[in-house]
Design a protein around this nucleic acid. Structure first.
Lengths: 217, 217, 217, 217
DNA sequence: TTGTAATCGAGACGGTACGTCCGGTCTTTGT
DNA sequence: ACAAAGACCGGACGTACCGTCTCGATTACAA
């Protein structure tokens, strides 16, 4: 079976479907949108969707791919820490934006559907991870960071906290968080007697255990 | 309106429902199980589920709560880093286990349902975060780590990478990852000329960019 | 099994149930009312209804019994045809009234439930048929009608047309119909050259075949 | 809104639904059959039933329509009374048959649903009433019956007694009843001194008031 | 007068069916 | 020859009632 003749495919329908899918996903989220709605809004038969995609998640995946290819590239100014700050800030900002619902929806779908998970990894995660790794490796070669750490794990340490906030909805990822991540990552936790003992209050910080109900839904 | 008379509630049915829900979730995941199935397997009317819970996610949430309350507590041996290693290893192991599907299912559901998100935070995340924070604060007071970092962000740096692997399905969380996280977090990335430049191979590490499609689900 | 102790029965509840049932039946018909509604409106537990009656139809049956016992009796003036006219007019009027829905509802229920049918016959039909038969027999003995017809069939000829209109909803039973029934029944259809050929217009008469759709529902 | 595109309708499904409905109605009656059963037996989605009919009664109505169109026609031999006897006997026989449950079920449903009532009248009652009226009018013109009676009322007098037995379940309509109806209707009740005073026993006749339980459900 | 036993209001329970919605497939129609 | 349109089967949704089953709290009888 597999896919029909790619050549006869209607680009017009493809575009309308991707646009409608993205639109709907932003309106009510991946789980609450239906293939039927996409079809209706795109002015397309349902079969046309099922012919070319396996699920609404696959449609959304393709729709997202097109819009975000630009954000892959990593800056290079020579200062690794500054470049990381630039890039991570961009990510934190994106994660905090309302427009980002489709991405979290996709990650949610990936939890229950290995195909989505694979596609997500391949198209969204890995290219960005690779870009980050390359920048890190270059910095390493330039002696800006130590060489005895695993680059992959390092990427996870830098971006994991952003995903943590994004997906557990504790508080929105923020620029402040990015700075703190870099602070800790670069300086390390081990005590350094020569350093000042800063105790600045933190507006990001939720206060677990006090008036807990307020941070609901 | 709200809930009916709690006193007349049948504990027998409640148990059967929670058990059935957990069982089904492990069999096919939260998204693919239905309220009807839970009811049938529990030998219960659907209305009995709808009477006491708002959704299948809420049932699962309650079912999970009961089983994991024991894992909150943090060890205290006096050595903060060792205690973190102990606890994070436990988490990494749990995250890797097959039995953990219900938890990721719940996180997925939280992406599209604020009520689930709130409940997840309140019952699963916050108690553990609090426990970790307390341990960290104690270590801080004992001078084992620096005092000028935000504790919340620190928690995110430690656990974020585990969630990253759990939810993005790049590779399973592992004990090795835990060690590396602690290495980086404690030592910091900044170069230290006195240290050896270890280059040990890493079995966890996927090789992005080579035969990338092969690691798909 | 059967019924519980009749002596301890609460007359208060019995009354409230019968009243509520009749009220509800008039509001929305037997089929669309529920035991739950009766119980709620009567301020009574559902069990109290199920304890004493087998179905909502049985409740309604009993409720109706109480209200209509007065209409059984047949007048006796000496003029059979006049007495029939009096009684049948009363019936036609009752059948036409809006308050009569419970009765048709009961007949409807009887079509699918033999118990209701038996109860209906026993409590509502037979006593009235017997009364009518007695009056007819007396008239027969007095020589006011011929003796060579079956009394039962005669009753059916007199009242059947009223039930016909009541149950098939072609047009409401009317006094005019009663007069015509008696005319035909007493005179007979066979031509009598000596009689006048009346051709009075009939306001009751629907005109089948012309603009038929207009008389719908 | 209303009905979808009639042209795309599947005749296959329509047939299966009507057949299943009639079958089920004969098995357990209109009230005790469910839309779900019809769907299952017809191998059809429930939605396909709800798409084209408003209720199970509507389905049954359409199913019955197709089977009974043949019985409308009235015989014409020149002898009105004989023709009436022929036709009414056919009806009496049909009313007595077990296969007739769907019809009584429909009449029952009509008591609580004006749409069913209208449909019943339009499709089942009126065509037959019209056919009978025409035959009667012709007989009237031929001088076989008097001209000073209302034809509609006459139809009710002839058929009302059959419906009476059918719906009140006193005793089954019978050929004997038909003969007696015609006897009374044609001869009239008024005494005729020249006639014999027949007193033949009647097997149809129930004996109200004696051992009444025997005719119970 | 006080137990004792049954009925009572209340309503949770295991179920059945409702009528709606959507997922995926199959058929018809128009271009 | 495509696709659009959309009807189709299947089956889960959440709701409404069914008739049964506890629960105390009356209530009426017997002791």
């Amino acid at each position: 079976m597999s896919t029909p003749n790619e050549q006869r495919r209607s680009e017009r329908s493809r575009r309308a479907i991707l646009d409608a899918a993205l639109e709907l996903c932003r309106e009510r989220g991946l789980a609450k949108m239906t293939v039927e709605e996409i079809a209706k809004r795109a002015g397309v038969g349902k079969q046309t969707i099922y012919r070319w995609w396996g699920s609404k998640a696959a449609v959304l995946q393709e729709a997202l791919n097109e819009r975000v290819n630009s954000t892959i590239d990593f800056p290079y100014t020579g200062d690794l820490r500054a470049d990381l700050h630039t890039q991570m800030s961009r990510v934190a900002e994106a994660f905090g934006s309302e427009e980002f619902a489709p991405y979290t929806g996709l990650i949610a779908a990936a939890q229950e559907d290995p195909e989505v998970a694979a596609s997500l990894r391949e198209h969204m995660i890995e290219p960005r991870v690779r870009a980050c790794e390359e920048r890190l490796r270059r910095g390493q070669e330039e002696g800006q960071i130590r060489k005895d750490f695993d680059i992959d794990t390092l990427v996870e340490i830098l971006y994991g906290p952003l995903y943590y906030r994004l997906l557990l909805h504790t508080r929105p990822p923020s620029l402040k968080q990015v700075s703190e991540i870099l602070d800790i990552a670069f300086s390390g936790l081990s005590p350094d007697p020569g350093r000042p003992e800063a105790g600045k209050p933190d507006p990001d910080k939720p206060e677990y255990g006090r008036a807990g109900g307020a941070d609901g839904a």
